[in-house]
Amino acid sequence: MSAGGSTRAILAALGANAGIAVAKFVGFLVTGSSSMLAESVHSVADTSNQGLLLLGQKTSQRKANKDHPFGYGRDRYFYSFVVALLLFTLGSVFALYEGIHKVAEPEKLSSPLVAVVILVVAVALESYSFYTAIKESRAIKGDVSWWGFIRQSRTPELPVVLLEDAGALLGLVLALLGVGLTVITGDPVFDGIGTLSIGILLGVIAIILIIEMKSLLIGEGATPDELAKIEDELATGKVERIIHLRTQYLGPEELLVAAKIALRPGLPMEDVARAIDDAEARVRKAVPSARLIYLEPDLYRTTVRTP
């Protein structure tokens, strides 16, 4: 997949979160709501995160060199991992701290209606961003579930934006509940509870992203569907069998394929070279992201142990 779809989702989220952050800060200054403050910091963190995702896309396009012969594709994984860390530290930890403080020392809200109006507007803007992320993700999701897409996707930005936007929408609902219950009951402790809930929500999302981005950063192989296609395309023609096969994503759009293949005995050197070229062409056609393919011809021996 090209980076175009993920870029559109990032830009939509960036614009929405920047506007929401300003509105929420104004709401906090007017009302003094800790839920509004937590949501303001959350939106600032999200805006910064989208900037980092765009930076990762930019730096990953640098050409390969002597020090980095496989290029810089994993920059997108690195910056996505940084985004997950920021969401945890700047979003979750701050909200938890502020929530504990407000529960221990509740403060009366002023002009809570202002907070409600701003939060409702924020829900509309965040919904647009979430819709854009869903639309762009559907193009590559296939038949897998949304959870499966987040777990299996080798394009890091879309899962990050999807989870961020989902968390933002749920966080806004929690903030509305906190402010609303405070107005209805007259007890500002509910505002602090709403803030705590936002912190827990962001923490759960951040941990999920940290686990997934770490896995991509240290190197994940082809998806089960891609692996099956590669095996089918390799083990045809003059290739008798695959002795062993290894794959690894060097970036979201660049898959490394390395395999030892058994060819028919007695093939002339020209036929061996042609068989390898044909196998590479078949694999690239079936899995376009398989850009780097290294095939080692060999004779199959039953005593050979695969590493």
Rank of each mutant, 00 (worst) to 15 (best):
V93M: 14
T236F: 04
A273M: 13
L181Q: 05
F81M: 00
A13N: 13
I230A: 02
A3F: 12
S6L: 02
G203M: 05
L86N: 02
A279H: 05
K102Q: 13
E296P: 03
L96E: 13
K135S: 12
L255A: 09
V121C: 14
I207A: 15
G192Y: 04
V41Q: 10
K285S: 14
T182Q: 08
R284E: 03
R154I: 05
S137K: 02
L170S: 11
F78T: 01
H68C: 05
R246I: 10
A45W: 09
S145G: 14
S153T: 09
L169P: 07
Y249V: 06
L201K: 11
G99Y: 06
S92K: 05
F78L: 15
E280Q: 10
Y300M: 08
A124E: 11
E254S: 10
G32E: 07
R151F: 11
I193C: 06
P106A: 03
K214E: 04
L125W: 04
V83M: 00
R301I: 07
E164S: 12
I211V: 15
E226C: 04
A9E: 00
R282H: 08
Q152G: 06
H42Q: 01
T236D: 09
A206P: 03
L96A: 08
D278H: 10
F94L: 11
D165S: 13
G192T: 02
W147G: 13
I276C: 01
G56S: 02
F25H: 08
